[in-house]
Amino acid sequence: MKVLLGVGGSEDSLRALEDTVERARAAGDDLTVAVVENPRSERTPEEVEERVRAVLGDAGIDADVRRVDGDAGSQIVDIAEDEGFDMIALGGGETSPMGKINLGSIAQFVLLNSHVSVKLVR
């Protein structure tokens, strides 16, 4: 399966990175990682890209890693639709101190706009 993973640097996006890379290794998915700008993340795109390459390296996976500038949600949807991806994978939200799940703004946009199936990693 051709999978596009969007990573912006939030904690849930980093969990999605680990999970999706592991899944790609087990299933033989063709994985592309889009490093996107998440204004709510404290990590810079450089730091996020470094982390992505480290996780891919540890898993021994050869994936395309791209830096994507501009509005993250719309860019992810555009890439997935233009390039024939089968699935978009994203972090499935952060939990509040109470334990409530709050979906990130990028995931919300992608869910409502994508014609490609979306997987939210919990």
Binding site: T95, S96, P97, M98, G99, K100, I101, N102
Partner: peptide
């Protein structure tokens, strides 16, 4: 349930309650 709480399994209810009552 709202946004994943309260949890549905009793074991999860107990650990969730211990977290929110214990802090």
């Amino acid at each position: 349930r709202a946004q994943g709480i309260p949890p549905s399994r009793e074991a999860d209810v107990r650990s969730w309650l211990e977290t929110i009552l214990g802090g």
